[in-house]
Nucleic acid binder design. Structure first.
Lengths: 199, 199
DNA sequence: GTCTATAAGTTGATAGAC
DNA sequence: GTCTATCAACTTATAGAC
């Protein structure tokens, strides 16, 4: 059955979000005009407003989707509690590197464009970020309770480790010298030692 | 001797740079207009062009000054080579946290606004960043040679540690629960263990 | 759903008076 | 060294034709 001429609601929406994410990551939210997004999609600027009420909401929804997918993906990948803190920490380390390197644009935008969120949108994204940090904090606390980890400030250690792991995105390239598996192993080695109870 | 009315070249220049740094950090380079910088300084927009040829150069000079001060401060603070890799690593860790928390705006701008640099300016800033990473890489390699550190990829470990240490800026507040000295000690404990040769 | 046209405002940078 | 005035280009968002 032929579609109404010029009607592409089922595919234009995703393409708008993809174009916006890519352009925001490369040039920054404030530098990217609605016209540039439209040009990337292949429509006129006015057509974008069928898919977002305004530019701010477009940014916010990209960030919210990313953070919620991150949380859902970890909750689906996390080992069961009986596996222990050490196994959970290794799983978290490898998950974080794998998930974030595959979504470099979304990670970048979700961190760099926090300044450009309206206050209420900022609060929501910050809450999701805290939720993610809390997942790692709980793993560290569990390892301490088990006597496997020596961590005096689990919240701060969680933030420190996440910062270290996210830093992979600044240099890792898919076709580089090291495979993703090798990178995971290198970072897991540092993470493990950084929190291990040696004595 | 009375100054020509309206002439303030000796103090307006620094104030322009301070206002630009603060506004760029808070709102982002692309979101801050020359008029807003001028308003913060208390002059009209046209007057700014006595101190910078254009907005791009203003950004670049802020970033270049920051990176060169960072390198110069470390080179002045670094312990002598005979102190050994372990002492150098502790000095680097504490220096990085102390210097960067005291210049949070410049650190933030120098990382977040890389996208908004012209290609030739970008290359210069990236070169300075690599120089700084190389300082830490050399410390790690020295510790490995001494048998104190177990690090198979010193360059990657250097980038990982710098990312972790710079992350302090996202949560540290001067009047928070932990003093800067306590934060330094917490991070040094993690850094030390992350690279230590356990035998 | 997409288009064209438009409103109303902002932008970086310059010219020339003082 | 700073001001006012200005330019040409660009911005987000909307209205209404198709």
């Amino acid at each position: 059955m032929a579609r109404t001429q010029g009607s592409h609601s089922d595919i234009t929406g995703p393409r708008v979000r993809e174009a916006a994410l890519s352009l925001f990551a490369r040039h920054g939210y404030a530098s990217v005009s609605m016209r540039k997004i439209a040009a990337e999609v292949g429509v006129q600027a006015g057509a974008l407003y069928n898919y977002t009420p305004d530019k701010q909401t477009l940014l916010f929804e990209l960030m919210r989707a990313h953070m919620e997918e991150l949380l859902a993906a970890w909750d689906a990948a996390a080992p069961p509690p009986e596996a222990g803190g050490q196994a959970a920490l290794e799983a978290f380390t490898r998950f974080h590197i794998r998930f974030n390197t595959r979504r470099a644009d979304a990670v970048f935008v979700s961190y760099m464009e926090l300044r450009n969120l309206d206050p209420e949108n900022f609060s929501i994204i910050e809450g999701l970020r805290r939720d993610y940090e809390t997942r790692l904090e709980a793993i560290l606390s569990r390892g301490v309770a088990e006597g496997r980890f020596a961590v005096t400030e689990p919240r701060i250690a969680a933030m420190a480790l996440i910062a270290m792991l996210t830093g992979v995105n600044t240099w890792f390239r898919e076709r580089g010298r090291l495979s993703l598996g090798q990178v995971e192993a290198l970072y897991w080695d540092m993470v493990r030692r950084a929190v291990a109870n040696q004595g």
